[in-house]
Design a protein around this nucleic acid. Structure first.
Length: 857
DNA sequence: CTCCTACTCTGA
DNA sequence: CAGAGTAGGAGG
């Protein structure tokens, strides 16, 4: 009676995303647990690969052939039972693979490196060199080459290395041979490895070589070594004499030093006494000192100076805190939505809730949108909770991520601030998840699994009874609808914490400005206002949602527009480098003086970007100190902190920025915010563009008047009559919501429906078209079979709005589940796009499935 | 992705 | 006919 396990194997192939059954050998039977990372032989070559235990069984019901697992890789299971449930749920909800989900949850940096090793065949091991030489002379060129290389490397060589040598060799021998001219190094290596492999198997059959897999388990950890004496100093002197141990001067020095100091870090010891590591090591061998290893926690240091503020909570805040904390242990609680105007002190409420949870022994996660994961936010939490605060986001290195997750598991980190994937942090007793600015689009993942953080949060409330708090000044329409219909507990914070009114928003109609002959991007009003504020020694923020110098470059003679070679996107002009940049794939090209089409000289950059604003502001206001905050100025590490520090220390008067400045920034002396063009966002061809505009403008406006001084906002637009603009000016979120929800209802958008998008992309446009048509036909066929005749809910296939990204052509089919059960639709799509993927689709196309995508571009 | 089998192509 | 190379299917 043996034991069997079902595992998910960590393979790079999408076609092995099933549970595989393995037998557990006798010696592992008592140790194996759910969620263990194990090593299993996989495929015909029994390559050792990592796998995760999803199920343990006492018999092999299905009667499939099984192999034995090789080993258990970690002492403790990497995945908990509830993680496995979460993975199942996510896989079904977002139609992705098990491995996609596992990769989100497990600590980064646990890797298995495996490589194929080629050795001489055992029968040739003792053979005389001359015999071997004769033998190899009879072989074909290729085989001789392999054998030669094996011998050169003392009888064993890694496949990888052999492939390299082979490419090197071929390049020398046959320079003009086509295959070795392939530019793409990876493809070349693939091909050579493939060829070599089939050769190697033949050689194995001929008893020339032996093949085996070797592997190495890697844990991306750094240990610190502490040195102390093994016994007390006097005893040791005696011991040395007794055993006649000879010591060098340096060694004596080290011992002397350790007499008064315990647990000295080995590197300090080396530095202080100018001793070498071998000196210390030999002392250890003589059994006089001992080493103690401890995990090293790679923390990123922040240079941001936090300015502490005295905080007194107001009535509204106290009510919110009381409400949330008093229900923390209720079984049937709802998620909370805090709708609080900008500056209403939501963060203070979060911190009180976290503090309460902490005292009850519960851990907390604070999620913030990636762009507002600013030093300011982090400093605020660290200032209050000190060392138990951890930070987790995509810019950390693999090693840093690993360390943070390890410290969480150990219980050293109790509060984690991070971007969306931090919601999967492996806390031992998670109590609170806070999602700040939950309306932000970055809470929806854009890579597999394409999860919505809020959905995962709601799942956690259901399954693990955590306290979920969503906070925003500008809730998204669909989540606000949930609050209205009773799915969330709605808590309103209507007053600013400093009791100052919200900054007044004034609209300037740029059409009028144009009529009066002002052709610049600055209205007279805004220009005068800026002058005034600077005169009064206040600070100004200018907001424009586009980086670069100009949005596109075109020829005025023939209308030619410079476009990205790889994408269907016009190039944004960056003046400093005189290049056109593609903001999708990073492609750059120098913009020539002459039009490449008609050779005219009238090549001009059109539209506005932050770079141009900066340049012109410096001209208009002489001597004014300007800072620019966008992706271009913050590409280097710590640049963001530097800019924020400078602005905080009032080393600049004007801060120009993209949406990076809209969140979480809290400056005391900003009295004026200028929104240079609200239209850019308003006219975006997406059903969420009104919502996005409302949110962004409200958020940016909220940067003004956060301290003693009152703030003011000037909003420039060509469309001053727009209903959205009017709602923004009145801070009328309710009104905006009512307008918007009617539209959503009318067109059956979220929250009234789920939307499912399938995008097929590939380098070959015809192939993409063929595949998407095929997909459409298959779906229609299967739906007809289930008695569905009305296909109005299917839109497409159509080319995506951005029809080409990174040389990949993109076509899309959209589904709205008006008159069809979402699970039926998902079932069918899953069947076609995942289960039967290899039959339905060509190999050279990618399929991307997204439930309720952020945008349908 | 990786292996393996079965097949075709090439050149003496 | 041997050796080189390719295509396609399956992985417990």
């Amino acid at each position: 009676m043996g034991r069997y396990v079902k595992v998910i194997v960590k393979n790079n192939s999408q076609y092995t995303d099933n549970l595989f059954t393995y037998k557990v050998p006798e010696f592992l039977q008592d140790e194996i647990c759910l969620g263990h990372r194990v090593l299993v032989p996989f495929g015909k070559g029994n390559k050792p690969i990592e796998a995760y235990v999803f199920k343990i069984m006492h018999n092999n019901d299905e009667g499939v052939d099984t192999k034995d697992i090789y080993d258990i890789l970690d002492e403790r299971p990497t995945l908990k039972r509830e993680d496995l449930e979460l993975i199942h749920w996510m896989k079904n909800r977002y139609l992705c693979t098990y491995m996609d989900c596992i990769n989100l949850i497990i600590p980064k940096g646990y890797k298995l490196n495996n490589y194929k090793l080629i050795t001489l065949h055992p029968s040739l091991k003792g053979i005389e060199p001359y015999e071997l030489y004769d033998l190899s002379e009879q072989l074909s060129e290729n085989k001789k080459f392999v054998l030669q290389k094996v011998l050169d490397n003392k009888g064993k060589i890694k496949l990888d290395k052999l492939v390299d040598k082979r490419i090197e060799y071929s390049a020398q021998v046959a320079e003009d041979e086509e295959i070795y001219q392939v530019k793409d190094k990876k493809t070349l290596k693939r091909k050579v490895a493939d060829n070599l492999n089939s050769l190697l198997y033949k050689m194995k059959e001929e008893s020339l070589i032996d093949l085996k897999w070797e592997y190495k388990s890697i844990k991306n950890e750094i240990k610190i070594c502490y040195v102390s004496l093994k016994m007390n100093y006097v005893d040791m002197m005696f011991y040395i004499k007794e055993n006649k141990i000879r010591l060098g001067d340096k060694q004596k020095q080290v011992l002397e030093f350790l007499k008064n100091n315990d647990d000295v870090e080995i590197n300090d010891l080396v530095d202080l006494l100018k001793a070498s590591k071998s000196t210390i090591n030999s002392l250890k061998e003589k059994n006089l000192i001992e080493f103690k290893y401890e995990d090293f926690y790679r923390k990123t240091k922040s240079n941001f100076n936090y300015q502490n503020k005295e905080v007194v909570l107001n009535e509204e805040q106290n009510y919110a805190i009381e409400k949330i904390t008093s229900e923390m242990f209720d079984e049937e609680k709802k998620p909370y939505m805090i709708h609080g105007v900008t500056g209403s002190g939501k963060t203070e409420v979060y911190m009180e809730v976290i503090d309460y949870a902490l005292k009850q022994g519960l851990d907390s996660i604070v999620l913030v949108p990636e762009i507002s994961l600013t030093p300011q936010t982090i400093a605020r939490f660290k200032n209050r909770f000190k060392d138990i605060v951890g930070v987790f986001h995509s810019r950390l290195s693999e090693g840093e991520k690993h360390d943070v997750l390890r410290e969480i598991k150990k219980g050293n980190i109790r509060i984690l601030i991070g971007a969306r994937s931090a919601i999967f942090a492996p806390f031992n007793s998670l109590g609170v998840v806070i999602v700040d600015e939950f309306h932000e689009s970055s809470y929806k993942s854009d890579k597999n699994p394409k999860f919505s953080t809020l959905e995962v949060g709601r799942y956690l409330v259901n399954k693990r009874n955590i306290t979920l708090v969503l906070g925003s000044a500008t809730p998204s329409v669909e989540e606000y609808y949930r609050a209205k219909t009773g799915e969330y507990e709605l808590i309103e914070l209507k007053k600013r914490a400093n009791n100052k009114p919200l900054p007044k928003i004034e609209v300037v109609d740029m059409k009028e400005e144009l009529k009066c002959g002002n052709r610049s991007f600055l209205s007279n009003k805004l220009r005068l206002q800026i002058e005034e504020e600077i005169k009064n020694n206040n600070q100004v923020i200018l907001f424009l949602n586009r980086r670069g110098y100009s949005s596109f470059v075109s020829c005025r003679e023939c209308g030619y527009v410079f476009k990205c070679k790889n994408c269907d996107i016009s190039l944004t002009y960056h003046k400093k480098q005189n290049i056109g940049k593609c903001h999708y794939c990073g492609y750059e090209e120098v913009i020539p003086q002459k039009c490449p089409e008609c050779e005219s000289k009238y090549v001009k950059a059109f539209g506005l970007g932050t770079e141009k604003i900066e340049e012109e502001i410096k001209q208009i206001f002489e001597g004014v100190r300007v800072l620019r905050l966008d992706k271009d100025t913050t590409s280097q590490k710590h640049e963001l902190e530097n800019i924020l520090n400078k602005f905080q220390n009032r080393e600049a008067d004007i801060l120009i920025g993209t949406q990076m400045i809209s969140k979480g920034l809290d400056f005391n002396h900003v009295t004026l915010v200028g929104i240079l063009s609200a239209d850019m966002m308003l006219n975006f061809p997406d059903f969420k563009s009104f919502e996005n505009t409302f949110q962004l403008v409200t958020q940016v406006s909220g940067r003004a008047g956060r301290s003693e001084k009152e703030g003011k906002v000037i909003l420039q637009t060509y469309d001053s009559e727009s209903s959205v603009i009017k709602r923004i000016v009145d801070y009328d979120f309710e009104g905006f919501y009512e307008d918007e929800i009617k539209i959503r209802k009318l067109f059956n958008y979220t929250p009234f429906n789920n939307m499912l998008s399938v995008v097929i992309s590939g380098k070959n446009e015809l192939l993409v078209k063929k595949n998407i048509t095929n997909l459409y036909n298959n779906i229609v066929y299967l739906l007809t079979e289930r008695g569905i005749q009305d296909f109005d809910f299917i839109l497409g296939p159509n080319p995506c709005s951005i029809s080409k990204i990174n040389s990949n052509y993109r076509w899309q089919i959209l589904f709205k589940d008006d008159n069809i059960e979402i699970n039926l639709l998902k079932g069918i799509i899953k069947y076609i796009c995942i289960t039967k993927k290899d039959i339905v689709f060509d190999k050279d196309v990618n399929i991307s499935i997204d439930i309720n995508p952020n945008s349908i571009l």
